[in-house]
Design a binder for these strands. Structure first.
Length: 269
DNA sequence: ATGTCAGCCGGAGGCTGA
């Protein structure tokens, strides 16, 4: 089972690039988790993807955010949103059990960016957008703990908006005070890993210079000024099935590309 | 910090979010 995460930055603007990917490097993907569809469910081109052979589940909203799952395999137990949050109306979480040779729970997520961060001296103030990010991560951790307790093969993949370590970006000094790399952000990410999850790509490739996002601005792509923020986190039962992983970097060079590229893992399931 | 992009409202271009 090949599972892709891809922040497409707008389904309407990315229909051509996504179609080309699904007919090219992504043709053998069984499951594609999409982030930032920036569309309400009714406006998502469901029939278009169904005609290409995918089941389609969306959790969208107007203008911003929004996540979806495309799957060649049947889906069950589809869930939308995280518990808690008290009125949080951001569409950032969708999950389903993918019925392959072995069932795999796939959770697609779009973790809040968290910028801009306010500082009290050198300390980031954990209110506003940054507070929302950290609060959302705590809610996600609660769901991760629930899923771990099921002791099943499960994958949490998406745009985490977390640069896990300095080796995951070209210019660490430029990100030191950014919500994507601040110590509380990295600590919250590590806390989830420490519950017993394995990062799919890193488990197989320890090298620096592996990026999944290049800013549209300041020639970031041309200068390879990238960051690695799109991740697959695997439960032990899923990690035991991990056979391969990779980044489809060349998608960033397309006409009208997203600022993110697809990241994939394959499981013996 | 910014050599950018997407979507909204509204019918241009300024605003938001990233």
């Amino acid at each position: 089972m090949k599972i892709v995460t891809f922040n497409i930055n707008g389904i309407k603007a990315r229909l051509d690039a996504l179609t080309a990917y699904l007919q090219g490097a992504g043709a053998d993907a069984d499951v594609i988790c999409l982030q930032e569809i920036k569309s309400v469910d009714e406006a998502f081109p469901r029939e278009y993807f169904e005609a290409m052979g995918y089941r389609v589940e969306t959790h969208g909203q107007k203008s911003f955010n929004g996540v979806a799952i495309l799957s060649k395999l049947p889906l069950t137990d589809v869930r939308r949103g995280l518990a808690g949050g008290d009125g949080d109306d951001h569409a950032r979480w969708i999950e389903a059990v993918v019925m392959g040779a072995q069932a795999v729970r796939v959770c697609g997520l779009y973790l809040p960016n968290g910028n801009p961060v306010e500082f009290d001296g050198n300390a980031p103030v954990q209110t506003g957008k940054y507070g929302y990010k950290l609060g959302w991560m705590a809610r996600m951790q609660a769901r991760v703990a629930e899923v771990l307790a099921l002791e099943e093969a499960a994958v949490f993949c998406g745009d985490y908006n977390i640069i896990p370590q300095d080796i995951d970006c070209a210019k660490p000094e430029a990100w030191a005070k950014d919500a994507l790399a601040l110590p509380p952000s990295r600590a919250a990410y590590r806390q989830m890993l420490n519950l017993g999850l394995t990062e799919g790509l890193r488990a197989q490739n320890p090298n620096p210079g592996l990026y999944t996002y290049w800013d549209f601005q300041a020639g970031a792509w041309e200068r390879n000024n990238g960051i690695r923020i799109d991740h697959h986190l695997l439960t032990p039962q899923a990690a035991d099935l991990l056979t391969a992983s990779g980044v489809d970097k060349s998608e960033r060079g397309r006409e009208r590309p997203s600022d993110h590229v697809p990241v994939w893992i394959t499981l013996a399931a």
